[in-house]
Amino acid sequence: MEPIILMEHLHKSYGNKQVLKDINLKIYPGQVIGYIGPNGAGKSTTVKILCGLLSGFEGNVTVKGIDLRQDPLGVKRIVGYVPELADLYEVLTPVEFLELIAGLHELDPAIASERIVKMLTAFGLEQNMLQRMDTFSKGMRQKVLLISGLLHDPDILILDEPLSGLDANSVIIVKELISQLAAQGKTIFYCSHMMDVVEKVCDRIILINQGTIVADGSFEMLQESLGKGSLENIFAQLTAEVSLQGVASSLVSAFQKNRDDE
Protein backbone atom coordinates (compact mmCIF):
# COMPACT_ATOMS: atom_id res chain seq x y z
CA MET A 1 0.00 0.00 0.00
CA GLU A 2 1.18 3.55 -0.76
CA PRO A 3 1.77 5.68 2.34
CA ILE A 4 -0.60 8.67 2.57
CA ILE A 5 2.01 10.72 4.41
CA LEU A 6 5.64 10.33 3.53
CA MET A 7 8.40 12.24 5.27
CA GLU A 8 11.96 11.68 4.12
CA HIS A 9 14.97 13.17 5.87
CA LEU A 10 12.95 16.03 7.24
CA HIS A 11 15.11 18.70 8.86
CA LYS A 12 14.03 22.06 10.17
CA SER A 13 16.10 24.72 11.91
CA TYR A 14 15.34 28.10 13.39
CA GLY A 15 18.56 30.05 13.07
CA ASN A 16 21.29 27.82 14.46
CA LYS A 17 18.91 25.68 16.44
CA GLN A 18 17.94 22.39 14.81
CA VAL A 19 14.40 21.49 15.77
CA LEU A 20 13.81 18.47 13.56
CA LYS A 21 16.70 16.16 12.82
CA ASP A 22 16.18 13.67 10.04
CA ILE A 23 12.58 12.60 10.57
CA ASN A 24 11.57 9.66 8.36
CA LEU A 25 7.99 8.47 8.49
CA LYS A 26 5.59 6.44 6.39
CA ILE A 27 1.98 6.71 7.48
CA TYR A 28 -0.74 4.61 5.84
CA PRO A 29 -4.43 5.35 5.29
CA GLY A 30 -6.62 4.40 8.22
CA GLN A 31 -3.85 4.61 10.78
CA VAL A 32 -4.36 6.51 14.01
CA ILE A 33 -0.98 7.91 14.89
CA GLY A 34 -0.24 9.04 18.42
CA TYR A 35 2.46 11.67 18.05
CA ILE A 36 3.91 12.31 21.48
CA GLY A 37 6.94 13.92 23.02
CA PRO A 38 8.00 16.35 25.74
CA ASN A 39 7.51 20.10 25.42
CA GLY A 40 9.80 21.56 22.77
CA ALA A 41 10.51 18.16 21.17
CA GLY A 42 9.41 19.32 17.71
CA LYS A 43 5.82 18.06 17.62
CA SER A 44 4.23 21.37 16.70
CA THR A 45 6.89 22.05 14.11
CA THR A 46 6.17 18.70 12.44
CA VAL A 47 2.44 19.39 12.49
CA LYS A 48 2.85 22.89 11.09
CA ILE A 49 5.01 21.60 8.26
CA LEU A 50 2.46 18.91 7.53
CA CYS A 51 -0.35 21.47 7.35
CA GLY A 52 1.60 23.63 4.94
CA LEU A 53 2.00 26.39 7.50
CA LEU A 54 5.78 26.28 7.76
CA SER A 55 8.12 26.29 4.84
CA GLY A 56 11.88 26.40 4.73
CA PHE A 57 12.43 22.78 5.71
CA GLU A 58 14.87 20.32 4.21
CA GLY A 59 13.92 16.87 2.96
CA ASN A 60 10.72 15.73 1.26
CA VAL A 61 7.16 15.65 2.48
CA THR A 62 4.49 14.08 0.30
CA VAL A 63 0.85 13.96 1.27
CA LYS A 64 -1.36 11.65 -0.81
CA GLY A 65 1.13 11.90 -3.63
CA ILE A 66 1.23 15.71 -3.52
CA ASP A 67 4.61 17.28 -2.94
CA LEU A 68 4.06 19.71 -0.09
CA ARG A 69 6.63 22.14 -1.41
CA GLN A 70 5.16 22.22 -4.90
CA ASP A 71 1.51 22.49 -3.99
CA PRO A 72 0.82 23.51 -0.39
CA LEU A 73 -2.76 24.49 -1.26
CA GLY A 74 -3.39 21.02 -2.65
CA VAL A 75 -2.30 19.56 0.68
CA LYS A 76 -4.40 22.02 2.67
CA ARG A 77 -7.46 20.89 0.74
CA ILE A 78 -7.17 17.32 2.00
CA VAL A 79 -5.95 18.01 5.52
CA GLY A 80 -8.16 19.01 8.43
CA TYR A 81 -6.29 20.73 11.23
CA VAL A 82 -7.51 21.27 14.76
CA PRO A 83 -4.85 23.44 16.39
CA GLU A 84 -4.06 23.63 20.05
CA LEU A 85 -4.82 26.94 21.80
CA ALA A 86 -6.45 28.28 18.69
CA ASP A 87 -8.20 31.58 18.51
CA LEU A 88 -11.62 31.74 16.99
CA TYR A 89 -13.27 34.83 15.59
CA GLU A 90 -15.37 34.91 18.68
CA VAL A 91 -17.52 37.85 17.74
CA LEU A 92 -19.05 35.49 15.17
CA THR A 93 -21.62 32.81 15.84
CA PRO A 94 -20.54 29.20 15.25
CA VAL A 95 -22.66 29.05 12.11
CA GLU A 96 -21.08 32.23 10.71
CA PHE A 97 -17.59 31.04 11.60
CA LEU A 98 -18.08 27.65 10.00
CA GLU A 99 -19.64 29.23 6.91
CA LEU A 100 -16.45 31.27 6.54
CA ILE A 101 -14.31 28.14 6.82
CA ALA A 102 -16.53 26.34 4.32
CA GLY A 103 -16.21 29.30 1.94
CA LEU A 104 -12.43 29.22 2.17
CA HIS A 105 -12.57 25.53 1.25
CA GLU A 106 -14.90 26.53 -1.58
CA LEU A 107 -17.62 24.13 -0.51
CA ASP A 108 -21.03 24.54 -2.07
CA PRO A 109 -22.95 26.85 0.33
CA ALA A 110 -26.07 24.66 0.39
CA ILE A 111 -24.13 21.51 1.24
CA ALA A 112 -21.99 23.39 3.77
CA SER A 113 -24.97 24.92 5.48
CA GLU A 114 -26.70 21.58 5.93
CA ARG A 115 -23.50 19.95 7.16
CA ILE A 116 -22.81 22.75 9.65
CA VAL A 117 -26.22 22.46 11.27
CA LYS A 118 -25.97 18.66 11.42
CA MET A 119 -22.53 18.72 12.99
CA LEU A 120 -23.35 21.43 15.52
CA THR A 121 -26.50 19.56 16.50
CA ALA A 122 -24.60 16.31 16.86
CA PHE A 123 -22.22 18.04 19.28
CA GLY A 124 -25.13 19.40 21.31
CA LEU A 125 -24.69 23.01 20.21
CA GLU A 126 -28.05 23.41 18.48
CA GLN A 127 -29.20 25.87 21.14
CA ASN A 128 -26.07 27.97 20.72
CA MET A 129 -25.82 28.03 16.95
CA LEU A 130 -26.80 31.68 16.69
CA GLN A 131 -24.98 32.99 19.74
CA ARG A 132 -21.71 34.81 19.57
CA MET A 133 -18.85 32.57 20.58
CA ASP A 134 -17.41 35.05 23.08
CA THR A 135 -19.92 33.69 25.55
CA PHE A 136 -18.85 30.09 24.95
CA SER A 137 -17.06 27.84 27.42
CA LYS A 138 -13.71 26.32 26.51
CA GLY A 139 -15.34 23.00 25.68
CA MET A 140 -17.92 24.60 23.38
CA ARG A 141 -15.17 26.43 21.50
CA GLN A 142 -13.23 23.21 21.20
CA LYS A 143 -16.27 21.56 19.61
CA VAL A 144 -16.53 24.35 17.05
CA LEU A 145 -12.81 23.97 16.31
CA LEU A 146 -13.21 20.24 15.84
CA ILE A 147 -16.06 20.82 13.41
CA SER A 148 -13.99 23.40 11.52
CA GLY A 149 -11.35 20.72 10.98
CA LEU A 150 -13.87 18.11 9.83
CA LEU A 151 -16.17 20.26 7.74
CA HIS A 152 -14.58 19.69 4.36
CA ASP A 153 -14.39 15.92 4.88
CA PRO A 154 -10.57 15.73 4.88
CA ASP A 155 -8.59 12.55 4.21
CA ILE A 156 -6.17 13.37 6.96
CA LEU A 157 -7.14 14.83 10.29
CA ILE A 158 -4.46 16.45 12.42
CA LEU A 159 -5.57 16.89 16.00
CA ASP A 160 -3.47 18.85 18.49
CA GLU A 161 -4.76 18.21 22.02
CA PRO A 162 -8.34 17.88 20.76
CA LEU A 163 -9.81 16.91 24.12
CA SER A 164 -8.67 20.01 25.93
CA GLY A 165 -11.58 21.51 27.84
CA LEU A 166 -14.11 18.90 26.79
CA ASP A 167 -16.40 17.32 29.36
CA ALA A 168 -16.34 13.57 29.96
CA ASN A 169 -19.22 12.84 27.58
CA SER A 170 -17.67 14.84 24.78
CA VAL A 171 -14.37 13.03 25.31
CA ILE A 172 -16.19 9.73 24.72
CA ILE A 173 -17.78 11.18 21.58
CA VAL A 174 -14.43 12.33 20.17
CA LYS A 175 -12.73 9.03 20.92
CA GLU A 176 -15.54 7.19 19.18
CA LEU A 177 -15.40 9.67 16.29
CA ILE A 178 -11.69 8.97 15.83
CA SER A 179 -12.20 5.23 15.59
CA GLN A 180 -15.14 5.57 13.20
CA LEU A 181 -13.20 7.96 10.93
CA ALA A 182 -10.25 5.56 10.95
CA ALA A 183 -12.58 2.71 10.02
CA GLN A 184 -13.66 4.76 7.01
CA GLY A 185 -10.03 4.94 5.92
CA LYS A 186 -9.24 8.42 7.21
CA THR A 187 -5.80 8.97 8.67
CA ILE A 188 -5.59 10.59 12.09
CA PHE A 189 -2.51 12.35 13.37
CA TYR A 190 -3.08 12.76 17.07
CA CYS A 191 -0.77 14.96 19.18
CA SER A 192 -1.32 14.88 22.88
CA HIS A 193 0.22 14.84 26.31
CA MET A 194 -2.57 12.69 27.70
CA MET A 195 -0.81 9.35 27.63
CA ASP A 196 -3.77 7.27 28.77
CA VAL A 197 -5.87 8.49 25.83
CA VAL A 198 -3.08 8.00 23.30
CA GLU A 199 -2.55 4.50 24.69
CA LYS A 200 -6.19 3.60 24.07
CA VAL A 201 -7.03 5.50 20.89
CA CYS A 202 -3.94 5.15 18.72
CA ASP A 203 -2.82 2.05 16.88
CA ARG A 204 0.67 3.39 16.31
CA ILE A 205 2.66 5.55 18.68
CA ILE A 206 5.55 7.76 17.58
CA LEU A 207 7.64 9.30 20.31
CA ILE A 208 9.79 12.25 19.38
CA ASN A 209 12.46 13.75 21.61
CA GLN A 210 14.83 16.61 20.75
CA GLY A 211 13.85 16.46 17.11
CA THR A 212 14.44 12.75 16.62
CA ILE A 213 12.09 9.79 16.62
CA VAL A 214 13.03 7.65 19.61
CA ALA A 215 10.22 5.08 19.46
CA ASP A 216 7.76 3.98 16.80
CA GLY A 217 5.27 1.12 17.04
CA SER A 218 2.02 -0.06 18.58
CA PHE A 219 1.64 0.21 22.34
CA GLU A 220 2.14 -3.53 22.64
CA MET A 221 5.34 -3.37 20.60
CA LEU A 222 6.67 -0.56 22.77
CA GLN A 223 5.84 -2.60 25.87
CA GLU A 224 7.69 -5.58 24.45
CA SER A 225 10.86 -3.68 23.75
CA LEU A 226 10.82 -1.27 26.67
CA GLY A 227 9.23 -3.32 29.40
CA LYS A 228 5.70 -3.62 30.72
CA GLY A 229 4.11 -0.57 32.17
CA SER A 230 1.92 2.30 31.15
CA LEU A 231 2.74 4.62 28.25
CA GLU A 232 3.41 7.28 30.87
CA ASN A 233 6.25 5.20 32.28
CA ILE A 234 7.66 4.42 28.87
CA PHE A 235 7.52 8.13 28.04
CA ALA A 236 9.35 9.09 31.22
CA GLN A 237 11.91 6.34 30.70
CA LEU A 238 12.77 7.63 27.23
CA THR A 239 12.60 11.36 27.76
CA ALA A 240 13.10 12.41 31.38
CA GLU A 241 16.63 13.51 32.15
CA VAL A 242 16.13 14.16 35.84
CA SER A 243 14.21 12.51 38.64
CA LEU A 244 10.62 13.73 38.32
CA GLN A 245 9.93 13.24 42.04
CA GLY A 246 12.99 15.39 42.73
CA VAL A 247 11.52 18.24 40.67
CA ALA A 248 8.28 18.15 42.63
CA SER A 249 10.19 18.21 45.91
CA SER A 250 12.19 21.27 44.89
CA LEU A 251 8.98 23.05 43.87
CA VAL A 252 7.49 22.45 47.29
CA SER A 253 10.71 23.39 49.04
CA ALA A 254 10.59 26.83 47.36
CA PHE A 255 8.04 27.83 50.02
CA GLN A 256 10.29 26.60 52.77
CA LYS A 257 12.65 29.53 53.12
CA ASN A 258 9.86 32.06 53.32
CA ARG A 259 8.12 29.99 55.95
CA ASP A 260 11.32 29.81 57.98
CA ASP A 261 11.58 33.58 57.74
CA GLU A 262 8.02 34.14 58.92
Binding site: E90, L92, L100, G103, L104, R132, D134, T135
Partner: peptide, 25 residues
Amino acid sequence: QLKLILRYKLMMDDRHPNTFQQTRG
Protein backbone atom coordinates in the same frame (compact mmCIF):
# COMPACT_ATOMS: atom_id res chain seq x y z
CA GLN B 1 -12.27 33.93 -1.28
CA LEU B 2 -11.14 37.54 -1.14
CA LYS B 3 -14.72 38.78 -1.07
CA LEU B 4 -15.58 36.27 1.64
CA ILE B 5 -12.66 37.19 3.88
CA LEU B 6 -13.24 40.90 3.42
CA ARG B 7 -16.98 40.61 4.10
CA TYR B 8 -16.37 38.69 7.30
CA LYS B 9 -13.62 41.04 8.45
CA LEU B 10 -15.89 44.04 8.02
CA MET B 11 -18.75 42.26 9.75
CA MET B 12 -16.48 41.50 12.70
CA ASP B 13 -15.23 45.07 12.85
CA ASP B 14 -18.78 46.14 13.67
CA ARG B 15 -19.01 43.80 16.62
CA HIS B 16 -17.20 44.88 19.73
CA PRO B 17 -15.40 42.12 21.52
CA ASN B 18 -16.55 41.43 25.05
CA THR B 19 -14.14 42.41 27.74
CA PHE B 20 -14.05 41.41 31.37
CA GLN B 21 -16.03 44.32 32.56
CA GLN B 22 -19.00 43.59 30.35
CA THR B 23 -21.89 41.41 31.19
CA ARG B 24 -21.61 38.22 29.26
CA GLY B 25 -23.87 37.75 26.32
